[in-house]
Design a protein around this nucleic acid. Structure first.
Length: 275
DNA sequence: AAGACCATCAACCGCCGGAGT
DNA sequence: CACTCCGGCGGTTGATGGTCT
């Protein structure tokens, strides 16, 4: 890829991959000042990017609480189910997947489509060969969209209406942390073993650590929440989220985050914050 | 070992809608 | 009402790394 050389004279916005220095600048700026108006962020943060690029970088990569790595089985099924209901509404789907971005989900879906396309082709030829025999035993072993939507493979019983009306809860990244633990994400990241390089790291470990530290002392302590959600259903999740929302408000949750004054200008509206 | 091919992911682009003037 | 600005969204592209031949 490489970076496009900056044009002489005219201040042109830089494109391409972000360097670690740029990441640091953006992260530090937003954590300290909040993003405010995105178009002014690059200027104030000393970046030669446009506002859009900064926003995207923050949302998709730098934002605290983001989950990295493979999608879990449950996440995959949730995506399939929600996509079946909502279509290509990636941002809406992302709101129900803790720590995942719309971009990530979109990418997943496209690769999934490719896989499925290949599988379908295979199935088609297989069917033709065995057209005389019963079809039931040739069913795809992966969950069909219809089945997922109707059965709710892991108790997903929310309705399209509920989703469309915004009745589905959005998530706190504190919950992302918990879900991550449940799903065997980076659960080995105990607080003690964390390295807080330069205050922040490339991954959300720093925030997770801080969150965990907060949570362990607060109403979301290990016993109460972290250990209570194995094989959590959507309904349970929903309920716990409602509880979470109330607790958050009641306990000044925001101030708890990382000891940084994020509350002043820190927009969490798109950060799966339940409001 | 090297080139071709493929999958994944980060980032850009263009469009749309809402808010402000 | 028209215009501009901005943020958000979805589609698409291009780079990169891994696998295959």
């Amino acid at each position: 890829m490489g970076f496009q050389p900056l044009e002489k004279g005219k201040p042109k916005h830089r494109k391409g991959l972000w360097s670690p220095e740029e990441d640091n600048k953006l992260r530090n700026y937003i954590l300290k000042q909040g993003h405010g108006c995105w178009s002014s962020v690059p200027i104030k943060a000393g970046l030669q990017r446009n506002g859009k690029s900064c926003r995207l970088r923050w949302i998709n990569y730098l934002r605290p609480g983001l989950k990295k790595g493979m999608f879990t089985k449950q996440e995959e099924e949730t995506i399939l189910t929600l996509h079946n209901m909502l279509g290509n509404k990636w941002s809406q789907i992302a709101q129900h997947l803790p720590g995942r971005t719309d971009n990530e989900i979109k990418n997943f879906w496209h690769s999934y489509l490719k896989k499925r396309g290949a599988k379908d082709k295979k199935m088609e030829s297989h069917k033709q060969i065995h057209s005389a025999s019963t079809s039931s035993d040739t069913m795809d072993s992966s969950p069909s969209l219809e089945r997922l939507a109707t059965q709710g493979t892991h108790n997903i019983n929310f309705t399209k209406e509920a989703i469309n009306q915004g009745l589905m809860p959005k998530l706190l990244f504190a919950e992302w942390l918990s879900v991550d633990h449940v799903n065997g994400g980076n659960s080995s990241n105990s607080y003690d073993s964390l390295t807080l390089r330069n205050g922040f790291d490339q991954n959300p470990t720093f925030q997770e650590a801080s969150m965990q530290h907060c949570l362990s002392e607060g109403p979301f302590g290990e016993g109460e929440y972290h250990n209570s959600v194995p094989n959590i259903s959507a309904t349970e999740m929903f309920n716990s989220q409602l509880k979470f929302g109330n607790q958050m408000v009641a306990n000044g949750f925001i101030q708890c985050i990382a000891g940084v004054d994020l509350s002043s200008n820190f927009s969490l509206s798109n950060d799966a914050m339940y409001v």
